[in-house]
Design a protein around this nucleic acid. Structure first.
Length: 467
RNA sequence: GGUCCUAUCGUCUAGAGGCCUAGGACGUGGCCCUCUCAAGGCUAAAACCCGGGUUCGAAUCCCGGUAGGACCGCCA
C-alpha cells in the first residue's frame, strides 16, 4: 500500500507557521515513504473562505518548496459527494433529521454551561417519527456506550469514552456539509493512509472514526503534531511577531531556513541541527517527533538564516537580493560587480534586507559621510596618507585584494604605521561610515574606478574643510 | 465545568533502566583572533515539575498531585 498524506488548510487567511509545519511533516513523510502528498482546500464555510487566501496558501507552499502531487482539491466543489454520503447514512438509519433550530440549540447550550453540565446535544430528535415541513439538519448517531481508542503514531494510545461524544451535525439545514463529515468523506475517498495534523484535532478523532465505520471504510493512521506556541506559551499569534510564512520572505529569509527551522521544531535526529532537504527526507520519521508543544524561537530562525546565507553561493544569492535592492531604489540587475559585492556582505548579513542595506554604499554616486566619522577620521592630518594611498591605488592595473593590500603596506611601512591608522579613514572615504566589510575585499568588490573617485572626493573634502 | 494531550537548561532538543559528573544547538557572559563590523576558535553560567512506588539501580517504568495547553459550534 502506498503512503498518501494530505495537507488540508481552510482558506480563511494566509499560510501561517503552524500550518506550514503540518504541511512540511506531511510532505516529508510522503517523500520519505515514496508516497503521494495531496493538497486539499477545506472551503466548506463559503462565507469565510476567500480567493486571496487560497492564493496566499498556494504561494506559501510554493515558496517553501512543498510541492503537492495531487490537487488542489476544493471541498466547495464536492458538495454533492457529501450529500450523497449523508443520504446513505440517513437511509441506513445511521443518521437522522434534527429539527431543532440554531437558536434553540444555542439557548440549551448556554443553560447547560451555566449549570455546569456538559453542553452536549441531548438527542431529542433521534427517535422523532414525524417530519414537520421545516428545514432540518442531519445528525450522525454516535454510539452511547463503550469506548473508542486509536494508536496515535506520535502520541501513542488514546482512548475516549463514547458517552462523551455527541450526535454531531453532518449536514446543515441549508444542506451544506460540515467539517468533521467532509474530512472523513474526503480522506476516505482520496485514499489517505496517514492523517498528520495538529493535536488540536485529537478530540475530533473519535467522532471521525465512527463516521469512517458508518461509511464502511477502513480507518487511516493518525498522527497528531504538538502545537507551536508563542514566547508566553500560548497559541502562536500575531502578538508574537510574524506568523505568516510569506512575511518571512519579505523580511529577507531564505525558504530553506524556515523549512530547516520548522523541521527541528518538534522533530529531531540526534544532535543534528542543519539539514539539507535531501537529508530531511532521508532521515524523517514520525517516531522522532516529540509529543510536547514547542515555543517558536525567532532568534534561532535568524541564526539559521544567517547560516544559509553564508552557505549559499554568491551567484545564487544575486537574483534573491535584487528585489530587496529595488525596494531601496537601486537597480543592480546589470551590475557585473554584484556577486563580488555579495561575497563581502554574506558573513555580516542575517537577512537579505540587512544585505541590501549593507550594499547601498556600493551603488550610490556620492558618499554620505557620517558626521561623527568625519570628525574622527577625515581630519587634516590624514591628507598626506590619502594622497599617498590614492596614488598607490591609482597605479594598480590588476585590481585585486593582494595587490591592494601591497599598496597599503607600502604606505604603512614607509611611515611605520599600523593598518588601522589608514584603514579607518579610507573606510569612511569609501562608505561614509566606520562599519563595513574588510577594506581590501571591499575595494576589490567596489572596483578601481569608484574606489579612486571616492578617494579623490575625500581628499577634496578634507581640503575643503581645512580651507 | 467535562474530555483529551503534555511536562529535561530562558528556548529547541538528545536521552528507549546502569554508558548521565545529564550531551548538543540558539541566546547570554568571558577570552582569543582582528583594519571597523562581523565571522571563526576556546570557555562559563544554565535543566530532569513535585510526591509516592517498582527495581540492586530511574531523567527513563507505574500511580497520584501540580502546572500548562487543546477541544467541547448548523467554524475548520
Amino acid at each position: 500500500m502506498t503512503v498518501r498524506t494530505r495537507f488540508a488548510p481552510s482558506p480563511t487567511g494566509y499560510l501561517h507557521i503552524g500550518g506550514a509545519r503540518t504541511a512540511l511533516f506531511n510532505w516529508l513523510f510522503a517523500r520519505r515513504n515514496n508516497g503521494k502528498f495531496v493538497l486539499r482546500i477545506e472551503d466548506t464555510d463559503v462565507a469565510r473562505s476567500t480567493g486571496e487566501s487560497i492564493q496566499a496558501i498556494l504561494d506559501g507552499m510554493e515558496w517553501l518548496g512543498l510541492t503537492w502531487d495531487e490537487g488542489p482539491f476544493f471541498q466547495s466543489k464536492m458538495f454533492d459527494l457529501y450529500r450523497e454520503h449523508a443520504k446513505k447514512l440517513l437511509d441506513a438509519g445511521l443518521a437522522y433529521r434534527c429539527f431543532c433550530t440554531a437558536a434553540e440549540l444555542e439557548a440549551r447550550r448556554e443553560a447547560a454551561l451555566k449549570d455546569g453540565r456538559p453542553p452536549k446535544y441531548d438527542g431529542r430528535c433521534r427517535a422523532r417519527v414525524d417530519a414537520p415541513d421545516m428545514p432540518y439538519a442531519v445528525r450522525f448517531k454516535m454510539p452511547a456506550s463503550g469506548s473508542t481508542s486509536f494508536n496515535d503514531i506520535v502520541k501513542g494510545g488514546i482512548s475516549f469514552d463514547n458517552s462523551t461524544l455527541e450526535d454531531l451535525i453532518i449536514l446543515r439545514s441549508d444542506t451544506t456539509p460540515t467539517y468533521n463529515f467532509c474530512v472523513v468523506v474526503d480522506d476516505a475517498t482520496m485514499g489517505i493512509t496517514h492523517v498528520i495534523r495538529g493535536d488540536d484535532h485529537i478530540n475530533n478523532t473519535p467522532k471521525q472514526i465512527h463516521i469512517y465505520n458508518a461509511l464502511g471504510h477502513g480507518v487511516p493512521v493518525f498522527g497528531h503534531l504538538p502545537m507551536i506556541l508563542g514566547s508566553d506559551k500560548t497559541r502562536l499569534s500575531k502578538r508574537h511577531g510574524a506568523t505568516s510564512v510569506m512575511a518571512y520572505k519579505e523580511m529577507g529569509y531564505l525558504p530553506h531556513s524556515l523549512v530547516n527551522y520548522l523541521a527541528r521544531l518538534g522533530w529531531s535526529h540526534g544532535d543534528q541541527e542543519i539539514f539539507s532537504i535531501e537529508e530531511m527526507v532521508e532521515k524523517f520519521s514520525l517516531d522522532s517527533v516529540g509529543k510536547s508543544s514547542g515555543v517558536f524561537n525567532p532568534e534561532k530562525l535568524l541564526w539559521l538564516n544567517h547560516h544559509y546565507i553564508k552557505e549559499t553561493g554568491e551567484a545564487d544569492l544575486v537574483p534573491l537580493l535584487l528585489p530587496f535592492l529595488s525596494a531601496l531604489g537601486i537597480d543592480a540587475s546589470s551590475d557585473a560587480r554584484l556577486a563580488a559585492i555579495i561575497k563581502t556582505l554574506k558573513e555580516r548579513s542575517k537577512t537579505l534586507i540587512e544585505m541590501a542595506d549593507g550594499a547601498v554604499f556600493y551603488f550610490k554616486d556620492k558618499v554620505d559621510y557620517d558626521a561623527k566619522a568625519v570628525e574622527k577620521f577625515l581630519t587634516p592630518d590624514t591628507l598626506p596618507l590619502f594622497e599617498e594611498i590614492q596614488a598607490g591605488i591609482a597605479g594598480i592595473t590588476a585590481f585585486e585584494e593582494p595587490v591592494i593590500e601591497a599598496a597599503f603596506n607600502a604606505v604603512l611601512n614607509a611611515r611605520g604605521l599600523k593598518l588601522g591608522k589608514l584603514a579607518q579613514p579610507v573606510r569612511v572615504a569609501l562608505t561614509g561610515g566606520t562599519v563595513s566589510p574588510g577594506i581590501f575585499e571591499m575595494m576589490a568588490a567596489m572596483g578601481k574606478e569608484m574606489t579612486v573617485k571616492r578617494l579623490n572626493d575625500a581628499i577634496g573634502f578634507i581640503k575643503g574643510r581645512a580651507g
